[in-house]
Write a protein that binds this DNA or RNA. Structure first.
Lengths: 356, 356
DNA sequence: CTGAAAGCGCTTACAG
DNA sequence: CTGAAAGCGCTTACAG
């Protein structure tokens, strides 16, 4: 592969001059410029980004470590991150932790070794030593969706408190009184928060959240299945299962279906995270929708701010309840026919900002 | 960030020695080794992969350019690619083309500039000049899923011919005679092949595939919706719609639902690509399943073979029909309750190999 | 077993 | 406007 030297030779100039035209440096004669450009063309020269990075000490690359790519929520997050990064002139390398702390560390290590300019992470756990080091050490970092308390890193996330309250109001209005939850890992902030929000909302209706109605999941389908089976085996099974992510809701649906039971007739189901498929499941699933695309974009903006020396802000966006039919029929007229869900441009909700 | 020089100083040896212990070179004294390791520990040294790549001319990185990450089929493909790459000691950088040739070129260019060791691509079109250059030029390359005819590059893909035949037999057995298809872009091999396979299978039953029953899609949900609306507006609408990917099937479902029609009562629906959600749609969707995980793994193996100087083979794996209820009820007893679909380990079908 | 030195492909003061 | 030269952080013959 042709190097800058070859181009210089071909154009009859020094490598410095070639470098200057490649970098749009102003002080280059028109003549030199055209000769260099011609040489580049002839040789099919492509600048070596590795060498350039070594010299300039920047890779124009962002690392994104997410907990599970197969989760449609994170897939969409990753997509919007890449999109925004691209418009700002960065590439992104995605590391999929698969909800495994060891894999998460593997990716953080790998990304750090590659000298990415900044790291976006949705932590799988409370923070390994490596992660903590990275956060305190120089690497610009921003948390998306989940975060690690006590670390001085901006956080971009959705607040589901109100939406969960709306959900519980909806369920209570439908006459449900025994509500159960499939929780995410306690080591994750979203795992804890969603249970806390649910408990608080129930409390407002004078309802409790007994331990047997809290199932420990891991944000993956299999755990949703297992937990739901446990619920169904209870002497007094819950009337509603609230899965705190979409994959566990899928698992719950599997378990319910395997027992030959019907949603919502035999048991109601709601989920955190809305995805296009929820419109078409049997029945369509009531879910709490996050402004996913906007979260991705905001987190990139915050990270690039940090990288380029501006001071980034934490951002909190509201989630909202989307009522469908999986919790029972409401007296109200069914919501007007849902607009085509897939690929619809993200609605941008009002943004609440808070200093990190 | 500490460099190799700092480590050398701290350990009281030369950088050459540090490099040797870092690379597990045999001729290093035990004493030097322990001193270096201690220094590494003290300084929190992390080897600079950028510098190393420049020197060794290898990045241990694979590029993967796929047509659409949001498509669950490609998400799973990407996941299995990363997994296999990791076990072989490579990282992967994913470029999402979003079915746009210009974006595809952007990513290929970016990946080439970063001097990835090899490129895995599922082309969005017939091949831009850049892509063709890359293929002919030195960069080790392998096509997955889709490929570009006439280019000397190994291909790893699934063959859906038999499965499509099975699908048509199934539909015919159910009494359907007017069958329509939502095609993918003609510039993609999968776009063409699936239509050809469908036409051939219909022919075997003495059925034709009139032009009005061929809708031009682009593998995205929106086009599935539009095409299906067109079908429904026909004086004689088809009895079956076969969407040649899962996203267009989602779109078709949207369109049918918006008209207040039912599947399969009013119109039957089948899809290429099986995904966990198809078990839970209303109704569950009959689909052709690809051995996605195995495709991802096989393509990485082929690419790494090529990179490391072995000669890779093209691989063709069979797809298979999964009958559910979206085309009508069969006389046969309903298939035994489907096993939990999500995360189930990939079944490894017999592999048919053919020389590239 | 060890170190001095060259070199990977760039960028960028510095001098002219 | 231009070029010679240093240097980014590594690896690796080469000599000892």
């Amino acid at each position: 592969m042709a190097s800058i030297k070859d181009v210089a030779a071909e154009a009859g100039v020094s490598v410095a001059t070639v470098s200057r035209v490649l970098n749009d440096h102003p002080s280059v004669s028109a003549d030199a410029r055209t000769r260099v450009l011609a040489a580049v063309e002839v040789l099919g020269y492509r600048r070596n980004a590795v060498a350039r990075s070594l010299r300039t000490d920047q890779t124009h690359t962002l690392g994104l470590v997410i907990s599970d790519v197969m989760n449609p929520y994170f897939t969409e997050l990753a997509r919007s991150v890449e999109e925004e990064a691209r418009t700002l002139g960065y590439s992104v390398i995605i590391g999929n932790a698969d909800e495994r702390p060891d894999l998460q560390d593997h990716h953080v290590r790998n990304l750090l070794d590659r000298r990415i300019d900044g790291l976006l992470v949705s932590p799988t756990d409370g923070g390994s030593p490596l992660m903590l080091d990275a956060a305190r050490g120089g690497t610009p970092m921003v948390f998306v969706d989940r975060w690690i308390p006590g670390v001085e890193v901006p956080v971009v996330r959705a607040d589901g408190l109100e939406a969960v309250r709306d959900l519980v109001a909806h369920l209570h209005g439908l006459g449900h009184r025994r509500l159960a939850i499939i929780a995410g890992p306690a080591a994750t902030t979203t795992g804890q928060e969603r249970v806390a929000a649910f408990r608080a909302a129930l409390h407002a209706y004078g309802l409790g959240l007994p331990d047997v109605y809290i199932g420990q999941g891991d944000f993956q389908a299999g755990s949703g299945r297992r937990v739901t089976e446990g619920f169904l085996d209870l002497p007094e099974p819950p009337e509603v299962v609230f899965a705190t992510d979409n994959l566990m809701a899928l698992g719950a649906l599997d378990a319910i279906r395997a027992r030959g039971l019907r949603v919502p007739g035999d048991i109601a189901l709601a989920a955190f995270d809305d995805i296009p498929w929820f419109v078409h499941t049997d029945p369509p699933i009531t879910a709490i929708a996050q402004p996913t695309g906007e979260l991705g974009r905001a987190s990139v903006r915050a990270l690039v701010d940090r990288i380029e020396g501006r001071s980034p802000e934490s951002v909190t966006l509201p989630a909202r309840l989307v009522v469908r039919r999986s919790c029972g029929e409401t007296a109200e007229p069914p919501a007007s026919p849902e607009p085509p869900p897939a690929q619809s441009p993200a609605v941008r909700p009002p943004v609440r900002r808070s200093q990190s």
